[in-house]
Amino acid sequence: MSFDVALIVDSIPKMLMGLGLTLQLLILSAVLGLLLATVLLLMRISGKWYLDLPAQAYIYVFRGTPILVQIFIVYYGFPQLGFIRDSFLWPILREPFGCAVVALSLNTGAYVSEILRGGVLGVDRGLHEAGSALGLSAHQRFIYITTPLAVRLAIPAYSNDVVSLMKSTALASTITLLDMMGIARTIVAETYAPYEIFISLAVIYLIMTWFIQKAFGVFERFMSRHERQ
């Protein structure tokens, strides 16, 4: 097998033209997913069954079905529903970019809410009691005691999820978006050189993963500054 180095040198800049779109998908979905996850988390730990059960059902559905299926349902399925075409969401769901962000956010939100719940459950019960005994209200305990400690506990699993989300953005290419994966597929279709192109693309994703891991490493060290003897 010949390995066409010139093709790689030629294609990498082209694929990097899609980096902006990949990053937009990643950052928007991560932020929206985190907001959704926080709402789901609060529903899960509210102690009220009429909030907890819908959140559980949501999480079950979105964790239990493939992300690709979810993307297709949003992209191909939603436009067939009249009320969606008439709603304020239509300007977003009319565009493949909007569909990809919505599907990725809905999916990652389900995972991240469970990651955050693990963090919340990991906070020592004695600390809640100490807060209660000092007269702190439930809200104050959640904000000043539970949240900072739960965030610290959730970082490793959350950083995993962000890496996973970054890789999922490649699926946006299946609904016509020209992110890095979309561009790579176009080049492969023109050149019939899948090895060179996809291996170069894999390296680009690996480099992005490295940056994400480093960033979370810094964040984790900052959040654990109280743990150093």
Binding site: D124, G126, L127, E129, A130, G131, S132, A133, L134, G135, L136, S137, Y144, I145, P148, L149, R152, H226, E227
Partner: peptide, 22 residues
């Protein structure tokens, strides 16, 4: 109850200091 608790100090066997605060 929060107001009543604020009048009662409590010390626990396991200290229960908030680990993330000085």
């Amino acid at each position: 109850i929060d107001a009543v608790r604020s009048e009662i100090g409590m010390v626990f066997q396991s200290f229960n200091l908030f680990p993330h605060m000085t």
